[in-house]
Each structure stands twice: as structure tokens, then as C-alpha cells.
Design a protein around this nucleic acid. Structure first.
Length: 514
DNA sequence: GTTGCCGGGGG
DNA sequence: CCCCCGGCAAC
């Protein structure tokens, strides 16, 4: 009996060992994850904690209110510009006229002057206005038609292209536009992290992130320390944005970003911001549709287009803001990008919002550190903003990183397994939410996977609820002696060659985990 | 004494 | 890195 078993075992494991030897050493996954709580576990829990804190969208968001401005300006052309670009004669558009929004048909679009001649259906008259003041009628969502008059006049007024495009050298408008277009196209093409990562990668992504978290216990150390991680990170993030990888959102970092910029910084966005700007509507997996959800308290309106949502926010929520001059484009902060399943989206169901927004909001906020006293500047509605934005920023945990399991020794090869993570954890990064300049990338790094996805803890790891950041559990603590049979027992010393490498090297057995 | 592993060391 | 081994602690 025993004998037989043994042989069977041998057979099985020998294969395994071979396999493992082949793949094993490199396959990092098995080791740590499965490892006994002793070593790996302690760090685990923290992750969770950190997740809440780390991202700190809050700060970002805050800054956003002020800092974003400049950036937004840059972005502005993107949104309106999108449409500006292509007004075709006969196209149905909307335009602000006489303090209200009117629909009409495009008569002519003069590129040189960037003006559009529109035939207003309602008024039966023809007007000529700046291209920015015109938008495609189809695009706008169901916007309540109650934009305060002054807003109306303002709207066009404050979309001065000139401002947005305040580029050093000014060539002809046409050229300018072209460049913009090109940039936008490029961005949009290259932006979506989701699209870029193949399914498999995706899993890795999320997983990796989790791992990363594991390994970084304390924000700072981890951040700088885990070279691997950051490396990949930057790589991945790099894809999505041209801007250089930023240090992750470590509290410290944020703090800095925070502190400096706000006051004087109104306009001093770092150059990168420019590049970052236009995330443009991203492409999603086929099944998912991108919607934009209004974050205004008690609103939750979901629209299909950015323009729509912006207008919604502006008109409905920001409409009366007099000082909108200062906070123009504030709308950007009040919506978030949301992915909806095709069906849901199709039906236009505002109901289903996988929207991460509200849910995530609260936790981080609680933990968030010092809200700078900067709110003052922001308009009346800003308080709301604070709470909402962050979530937005946060939620958009971006593409995630790769699972780097840094097992100190993955001696051998258990078939690596991947931690199941559902793909849609990726919330898009709404550019609006992208915190100001510096931290631009930080949200990406945010570890807040949790919210949308119940984190799937690696099997072997006991789920600890960790409350406080425990120092590494006694680092010296030996791994508790495993109870399972180990290679030595199973194969015997005579067949040492059949042991798993770890065993051979007198390391923790990787074949027979406990 | 045996076994499982960590830390270290050599190539 | 890969591989080994001394030595410690749990059995």
C-alpha cells in the first residue's frame, strides 16, 4: 500500500518537479501567495488599510479645484474642439443665442475665422458665432433646459479658444486646430489602459497591484523601494500618458503637491499637465460602454457624452455660479466616467451605475489627512466637490500594475496561479478627475481596488483584518514548521533528486505547502 | 535524533 | 543567480 502510494506520488510529483524546475524558479506567483501566514500574511492586511488611505484622491481633488483650472483650460478645446472640428453644412447643432440654447443647422463653418454660421430653426434667422459656441445637438444628453440666462451668455464667453490654446507660437487657426486634433487623436488612441492590456495581462495587473501593496507596507519605503513595481508601473502608466511617471501617491508626495501649488499656482501647472490633459473618450472593451455620471449630490444623472454631462453639470448645478469665471470648467469635477455593461448602457439606464463614485468616496475621505484651507476660493458648491471629487479621482484606480510577487525565493515552481480578479475593476480614469499636474498619475497607482471588487485574497493567506499598521510581524520568526509531508519525507533522502528545489536547498518546501 | 528552514556563502 | 550547507528550532 504505502509503497504504491509512494510510487504514485513520485510519479506525480516528479512530473511536477520537472515542470517546476522548468518553469518554477521563475514563476514567482506560487511562493509567497501560498506561503503560510507567518511570512507573507502579516503584510497582507495592511494592504487593505493602505488601500483606503494611499490613494488620497482627496488632496488631488482639492487641488483640482484650483489647480485644475489651467489644465482644464487646456482640455477645454478638446471637448468643444471635438465638435468644432467638423461642422458640416446642414448639421444639426445647438448654440447659445439670446441667452438660451437654440438648435439650428450649420450653414457654414469658416475655418479661417473659426466661426460657424448657423441657421436657427426657432428664430428663423441666421447667426454667426464662434465655433466654440456651437455644439452638436445630438451629443447633448437630456439636459434640463433651465440654464440661467447669465450662464447662457457666459457660456460662450468663457470658452475662449484663445485662452485655451494659449500657445507660444500662433500660426493660423487652422493649423492650430489641426495640431490639436492630432494630439487629441493620438491621445485617445493611446490612452485606454484597458484596451491595451490583453485579458491575461489584465488579471496580472490587478493581481500585481495587490501584490505590490503587499510588499509595500509603509508608503514611503515601498514607493521608492520596490523598484520592480514602480518600473512596471511607470511602464504601464507611461502608455496611457505621455507625461513622465510620477511618484506614486504617497501621502508625502501628495502633501507636497498639495501644499505648494494651490495658492499661487492657479496657473502654474506644470508643463506635463498639458500633455496629460485630454484623455479623450476611451475605447473600452466592446461590452462596456462609457457613460458619464454626474456626481452632484442627489443627482447621479448619467449621460453618454462628455459634452452632455458637462452641460448638464454646468447648466443644472453650476449654473448660478456667478464667479464662474474663476471656476469655469468646474463641471469637469462633477462628473465621473463610468463603465456600463452594454445592455445597461444601451437602455440608457441611469440606474445601473457601477459607478464607483459614491461608494468609494467615504472611506478615503475619512482617512484623508489635512484638507487645506483652500476651499475658500472655491465657489459655494465646493464643499460638495470635496467629497465627490476625490472619489472620482480615487475610483479611477487605473490600470493597475503587474503582479510582482517578490517572493524572496520562489524556489520552485508551483504552477503559478493567478488571482482571479474581475476585469472590470478598472475604472476609467476620467481625466476630469485626474488631479492636478503633479499628482496626475497618482490616482493610477491608487490601491483602491477594493471598492469595486471584493478583493480576492490569495487562497493561502488568512484574511486578517488589520487595523493598525503592524510592524512586520516578527521578522525573525521562523516559518512555522509545516505539517505537510515534505519532499524529504515523501521521497526519502535517497531520492533527493526528486525533491523540489527548495527542499534540496534546504529551503521551505514549495511542493508540499502547508 | 529527525526534519524543516533560515541565513549565509561559494561559484 | 544557482546551489549548498551550517545551524537552529520544532517535532
Amino acid at each position: 500500500m504505502t509503497l504504491r502510494n509512494l510510487s504514485v506520488l513520485r510519479k506525480g510529483s516528479s512530473m511536477a518537479s520537472v515542470l517546476s524546475r522548468r518553469l518554477g524558479k521563475r514563476s514567482l506567483l506560487g511562493a509567497r501567495v501560498l506561503g503560510p501566514p507567518g511570512a507573507a500574511a502579516p503584510s497582507e492586511p495592511q494592504t487593505e488599510l493602505l488601500e483606503g488611505v494611499a490613494p488620497q484622491p482627496f488632496l488631488a481633488s482639492k487641488d483640482t479645484s484650483c489647480q485644475e483650472q489651467p489644465k482644464e483650460i487646456l482640455k477645454a478645446p478638446g471637448t468643444s474642439g471635438l465638435q468644432q472640428v467638423a461642422f458640416q453644412p446642414g448639421q444639426k447643432v445647438s448654440v447659445w443665442y439670446g441667452g438660451q440654447e437654440c438648435t439650428g443647422l450649420v450653414e457654414q463653418h469658416s475655418w479661417a475665422e473659426d466661426k460657424v454660421t448657423v441657421w436657427l430653426l426657432d428664430q428663423k434667422l441666421q447667426i454667426c458665432c464662434k465655433a466654440e459656441e456651437v455644439w452638436l445637438a445630438e451629443l447633448q444628453g437630456p439636459v434640463p433646459q433651465a440654464p440661467p440666462p447669465e450662464q447662457g451668455t457666459q457660456a460662450p464667453g468663457y470658452r475662449p479658444v484663445s485662452r485655451n490654446i494659449d500657445v507660444p507660437k500662433r500660426k493660423s487657426d487652422a493649423v492650430e486646430m489641426d495640431e490639436m486634433m492630432a494630439a487629441m487623436v493620438l491621445t485617445s488612441l493611446s490612452c485606454s489602459p484597458v484596451v491595451q492590456s490583453p485579458p491575461g495581462a489584465e488579471a496580472n495587473f490587478s493581481a500585481s497591484r495587490a501584490t505590490c501593496d503587499l510588499w509595500k507596507e509603509s508608503g514611503d519605503v515601498s514607493d521608492s523601494g520596490s523598484s520592480t513595481t514602480s518600473g512596471h508601473w511607470s511602464a504601464s502608466s507611461g502608455i496611457s500618458t505621455p507625461s513622465p511617471p510620477h511618484p506614486q501617491a504617497s501621502p508625502k508626495y501628495l502633501g507636497d503637491a498639495f501644499g505648494s501649488p494651490q495658492t499661487d499656482n492657479g496657473f502654474e501647472t506644470d508643463p506635463d499637465a498639458f500633455l496629460l490633459d485630454e484623455p479623450a473618450p476611451r475605447k473600452r472593451k466592446n461590452s462596456v460602454k462609457v457613460m458619464y455620471k454626474c456626481l452632484w449630490p442627489n443627482c447621479g444623472k448619467v449621460l453618454r457624452s462628455i459634452v452632455g454631462i458637462k452641460r448638464h453639470v454646468k447648466a443644472l448645478h453650476l449654473g448660478d455660479t456667478v464667479d464662474s469665471d474663476q471656476f469655469k470648467r468646474e463641471e469637469d469635477f462633477y462628473y465621473t466616467e463610468v463603465q456600463m455593461k452594454e445592455e445597461a448602457a444601451a437602455t440608457g439606464a441611469p440606474t445601473a451605475d457601477p459607478a464607483p463614485a459614491p461608494s468609494m468616496t467615504s472611506p478615503p475621505l475619512a482617512l484623508l489627512p489635512p484638507p487645506p484651507p483652500k476651499t475658500q476660493s472655491s465657489g459655494p458648491e465646493h464643499p460638495g466637490l470635496d467629497s465627490y471629487l476625490p472619489s472620482g479621482a480615487l475610483s479611477k484606480s487605473a490600470p493597475g500594475s503587474f503582479w510582482h510577487i517578490q517572493a524572496d525565493h520562489a524556489y520552485q515552481a508551483l504552477p503559478s496561479f493567478q488571482i482571479p480578479v474581475s476585469p472590470h475593476i478598472y475604472t476609467s480614469i476620467s481625466w476630469a478627475a485626474a488631479p492636478s499636474t503633479a499628482s496626475s498619475l497618482s490616482p493610477v497607482r491608487s490601491r483602491s481596488l477594493s471598492f469595486s471588487e471584493p478583493q480576492q485574497p490569495p487562497p493561502a493567506v488568512k484574511s486578517h483584518l488589520i487595523v493598525t499598521s503592524p510592524p512586520r510581524a516578527q521578522s525573525s520568526a521562523r516559518k512555522a514548521r509545516g505539517e505537510a509531508k515534505k519532499c524529504r519525507k515523501v521521497y526519502g533522502i535517497e531520492h533527493r533528486d526528486q525533491w523540489c528545489t527548495a527542499c534540496r536547498w534546504k529551503k521551505a518546501c514549495q511542493r508540499f505547502l502547508d
